[in-house]
Design a protein around this nucleic acid. Structure first.
Lengths: 209, 209
DNA sequence: GTCTATAATCTGATAGAC
DNA sequence: GTCTATCAGATTATAGAC
């Protein structure tokens, strides 16, 4: 308690309540499908009347915005390089396959989060500037290892499309299995063969069809 | 009118009204986002009271089912081979690229239809057995040219994932442009290089990286 | 900061007259 | 087959007491 003023303690308590509400909102959305929750349900879940939530969020869309921000922070956490940032090319290639697997796991482990973060499916909701900036940061961090390989522009578009496709098919057509997850390594190898410049390509292990 | 009994004419009139309602439902869903329409809006759109629609559909979900069936029939129409079914391999390869472009166009030209047909996003709606059979038929017809090349199992999964990815990224991130549409030919070539058996591969034009 | 009360409106669906 | 009338709720959000 030393050095903690009264006002910061109050503010902290408030932040805790806000986090609790956001966590409950995630739960409800996961249970009912994205967007299908009511303020009443949410209030019940956190032990309040629905109306009291308006002390913390101005509107339902502001809750979506907090979820959007929260989900992107989780993505940053997941995609953040954990160990050395590897300046030798060989390690970077396995690092990319690992990154693909981590991203796939992040997305398929929480389809509702994936839907909120990557698809535009809630009518009348647009992320605030602040949340959008977090999303931008998550995007940059996720693609950094690819950029370090010299990839850019439409090359990155092809890679993100393939990843989005594997994730989307997994979620839509085999939500309890791993049918498309099994294809990640093949897809990665295929993409690198197609896109990585010739003078780097030889460094890819097993790059011979 | 010769040979048309009275009862069939009445039945035809009824079918016309049903089609009109389904068309209006598509319009509303395209305007409001998938699932966000009310029976009242729909009634107004077709010049009825909302309650009168229940003479044609038992419930709102039955309307979704009619839309699901309708959309899959449109997909069959689109993917149906138009000309000779080509038993020479060379033509089949360009036929596949053309098929990819047609599918992409079908999906991106109507994102709400894509959402209904290929993503599970409406809570409490499951296609009826009849509609599901139509969807199955559409799937088989769409993949037939790939099967004719000898592709199967996880190979088809990789191809459908790449296509779903291009479509999904286009819809979510560039709905008014063609950023991912430009990548279809490259993606197709990449996939065929990866998947088509060596004794057929030489027939692919420009198959030399 | 949480409550009660309530505004103001929308929802899908049914019953029964015509 | 379309209508009126209505059920039996749900919804987000605000006002004001405590």
């Amino acid at each position: 308690m030393s050095g903690t003023t009264n006002s910061t303690r109050i503010s902290l308590r408030r932040q805790e309540t806000i986090s609790e509400i956001v966590a409950a909102a995630w739960d409800l959305n996961r249970a009912n499908g994205l967007g299908n929750f009511s303020m009443r349900e949410l209030g019940t879940k956190v032990g309040m009347r629905a109306q009291s939530i308006y002390s913390y969020f101005r509107s339902k869309n502001e809750i979506f915005d907090a979820m959007f921000c929260d989900g992107n922070l989780a993505l940053i956490e997941t995609m953040q390089p954990s160990s050395g940032d590897g300046s030798d090319s060989e390690d970077q290639l396995e690092l990319i396959a690992a990154m693909m697997r981590r991203f796939f796991q992040f997305c398929t482990s929480d389809p509702v989060r994936y839907q909120l973060l990557f698809q535009r499916t809630i009518p009348d909701f647009t992320p605030s500037e602040e949340s959008f900036a977090v999303a931008q940061q998550a995007y940059d961090i996720s693609l950094a290892p690819l950029r370090r390989l010299g990839l850019e522009g439409s090359e990155l578009d092809l890679i993100t499309a393939v990843m989005a496709g594997l994730v989307g098919q997994q979620i839509s057509n085999d939500p309890h299995g791993n049918r498309w997850g099994l294809l990640i390594d093949q897809a990665t190898s295929m993409l690198l063969k197609e896109l990585v410049p010739d003078h780097i390509a030889p460094l890819i292990k097993g790059n011979s069809k």
